[in-house]
Nucleic acid binder design. Structure first.
Lengths: 126, 126
DNA sequence: CTATCTGCAAAACATTTGCTGAGCA
DNA sequence: TGCTCAGCAAATGTTTTGCAGATAG
């Protein structure tokens, strides 16, 4: 994997924000320094970077995907109104040890656990 | 909410399958009996029916959404390779009582917990 | 040098929407 | 009869892709 200036900048942005931005938000941010970058390049790099484990893709509820520069295991809370994502502080126990036996035929590879809610902005607006 | 023949048929299909079909799969099935139905009508009805609580929308990982005629609380396992969804048999405890305190600013409204895995077909193919 | 990457533009894909006429209640 | 709904087609928004030229290693 080559370290082009486009790729480096996208990675840098993701590692220096807590905002879990969308591809287009990253695109807007990158263009401040590289005005000629194309949205396709952003998507291609986000794909490569998440495939290689440098960033993480967050599948929000039907909205645009979001991306996270922090790849450690941690929980997200997703605003079901605007799609904004925030890290959940502290720890949560998700006990689901017995799943392996319950899904015959399937090979269980992991879980997806997300907290849903309404962010401050959306609580005030509606 | 009116009970048109289109709406009744879509609901009937969802209540008599375990396949968790996508909108287009439902469309193909409905067309066997109502060949002139449009895909837009299927989407509009799935939206109305899930809004009214008659069916449930399943947000799979980045693929087409799927729909479930069973609205009782139960868990799904999603194949990360082909997007197929299956019900998880039995019970799983997800203990996450302490979340409310951990998401300051957000109003917690619920959780999303899904099991990820590889279905039989995809295990054999790859 | 050369394989990978970029920019551009078009395509792909799921989903939504505006409009007009049809049909449930 | 009135108001919701259907069919059709076009629009939307996100993401992917083909291609020809640029560039990292």
């Amino acid at each position: 994997m080559r370290l082009t200036k486009q790729r480096k900048l996208i990675l840098h942005i993701l590692q220096h924000t807590v905002a879990h931005p969308t591809a287009t938000e990253i695109y807007d941010e990158v263009r401040k320094k590289l005005p000629n970058i194309s949205l396709g390049t952003v998507y291609r790099n986000l794909d490569v970077l998440s495939r290689q484990g440098y960033v993480r893709k967050i599948d929000t509820c039907g909205d645009q995907n979001r991306f996270d520069g922090v790849t450690d295991d941690h929980l997200h809370i997703i605003c079901t109104s605007c799609g904004k994502v925030r890290d959940v502080e502290g720890e949560i126990d998700v006990c689901a040890d017995n799943i392996a036996n319950l899904a015959s035929g399937f090979k269980v590879t992991g879980f997806r656990f997300e907290v849903l809610g309404a962010c401050q902005d959306c609580q005030n607006t509606f």
